[in-house]
Amino acid sequence: MSTILDLQNITTTVNVGTSEEKNILKNINLKINDGDFITLLGTNGAGKSTLLNIINGSIFPTSGKIILKERDLTNLSEVKRAKYIAQVFQDPKMGTAPRMTVAENLLLATKRGQQRGLHLRGLDRHLEEFKRETAQLPNGLNERLNTFVGNLSGGQRQTLSFLMATIKKPELLLLDEHTAALDPNTSRQLLELTNKVVKKEHLTCIMITHQLKDAIKYGNRTIILNSGKIVLDVNGQDKKTLTEEDILQYFTD
């Protein structure tokens, strides 16, 4: 089992030198293995989103190192890291371009992290593939490839965001409460899809959730953050026997 992501002594402090100074992440050390499907839990404000943002490069740590497959990403921008890392945000509006069609959005995603030059985009060449990919999804996107994304429902947009994140296989997939804005049914469907795709494509994935049941049900590993520290990190058999009561013990302030 090889290490994909290695976080070394990650500390994040905001508003340094003011009365608002706050230590959001405190000396995080974390090794993530190839094929790990991690559910990440923690109270509001525990630092989960901040941790993902550190990994994707939208914020930089105050100190520490980020190594992905032996490449040092610590000083690489989010744009540069996109080559390796894909993400789905909580807000369905964040992950898709509303005035472009479903197919155009997908096309953008197939070229994640690549040099984009003056070649014709070649949408037609990809339509078959997009039809096939979207037909596997629960909410009829295959019928709406030429619809502007702004006209889709939140659930459809989020399903599309997920497909966009995985259509070109990432080395690491980050999901920040990606089903939180959806109704229970749609949320369930997208979680099942996530589980299926992560397993089938053998993706390495970190998924933030507030649903204890989902955190237990999905993935091979569960991590709990509390006030910027990892307070639980279980996998394998320990993870399988994890109960909601066990988890709740770690949800103290």
Binding site: V79, A82, A97, L108, A109
Partner: peptide, 16 residues
């Protein structure tokens, strides 16, 4: 076009 439509998304797809 993507930059004007959703800058955050564009960046996450590696667009400068």
């Amino acid at each position: 076009i993507a930059t004007g439509d959703n800058e955050k998304m564009a960046q996450s797809l590696g667009i400068n």
